[in-house]
């Protein structure tokens, strides 16, 4: 266990635990847009930065990546930290002006848009948090989604912006997307996502359409469970 101070409060933490978690466990909220408990943190959004004092040195660190250390003093709301957060939110508001999620979050933080930044007009709300990419790769294991290009041209999507043969229509990306850039639409027996439409499987017991056939085939192949056994929905199992 290590002892550290967060916003004036002395707390104990397991060594190696990241600051973001330690703060949350002690009732201190740090805003973030790219951290999810099921996924490894990447430090992409930069909202969770905090200022730490270690001996005589002060520095800004990423709380979702920085592990708790003995004797450090953490300030989650210093002037420097608030300035970073203000600009990150203003950058994101200008990047995706149509996102109500970003707008509401900024409002809650008391941040108004910077009028000098011309809002983007492409209508996109992707903030490059990369949660969808990580979920698709690490949790689902198909890697249908990814990035393309770099810098200001960086884009998110499937290769060549075409429906991906790898996509199984599980919907994890839509589920995890914080700004609803990725959406999923359904009819009774189909589901459309990432430019691809999937046929849904009807439950062999109750007849309800419950999962894309491709997803069930993928699970069957991966786990070795017979496809028959997988064609029963969770409520009938």
């Amino acid at each position: 266990m290590v002892k550290l101070v967060i916003d004036g409060k002395t707390v104990q933490a397991e060594e190696g635990k990241i600051l973001l978690t330690v703060a949350r466990e002690n009732g201190i909220e740090i805003p973030t847009l790219c951290s999810h408990e099921t996924l490894e943190n990447t430090g992409a959004c930069r909202l969770c930065v905090v200022e730490i004092t270690k001996g005589k040195r002060k520095k800004i660190v990423t709380s979702c990546l920085y592990a708790a250390e003995d004797g450090i003093v953490v300030d989650t709301k210093s002037d420097r930290v608030l300035k970073v957060r203000r600009f990150v939110m203003q950058f994101l508001m200008a990047r995706c002006p149509t996102s109500d999620v970003i707008r509401d979050m900024a409002a809650n933080m008391g941040i108004a848009p910077e009028t000098r930044f011309k809002p983007s007009e492409d209508g996109k709300t992707c903030i490059f948090c990369r949660l969808c990419v990580k979920a698709c790769e690490d949790v689902v294991g198909v890697s249908a989604l990814g990035f393309a290009f770099r810098g200001v041209d960086k884009a998110l999507g499937t290769p060549y912006r075409e429906p991906s043969p790898a996509c199984i229509g599980c919907g994890s990306c839509a589920y995890i997307c914080p700004t609803r850039q990725i959406t999923m639409s359904s009819t009774e027996n189909t589901r459309s996502i990432c430019g691809k439409t999937f046929k849904m499987k009807a439950c062999s017991v109750c007849g309800r359409y419950f999962a894309p056939e491709e997803q069930l085939a993928f699970i069957s192949k991966k786990t070795g469970v017979d496809l028959e056994a997988l064609s029963v929905c969770s409520s009938c199992r």
Binding site: V84, F128, G151
Partner: peptide, 14 residues
């Protein structure tokens, strides 16, 4: 702007 990898917000957008 062209050479930034585009991973983090301040660099890519800022």
């Amino acid at each position: 702007a062209k050479e930034s990898c585009g991973k983090c917000t301040p660099c890519r957008e800022g």
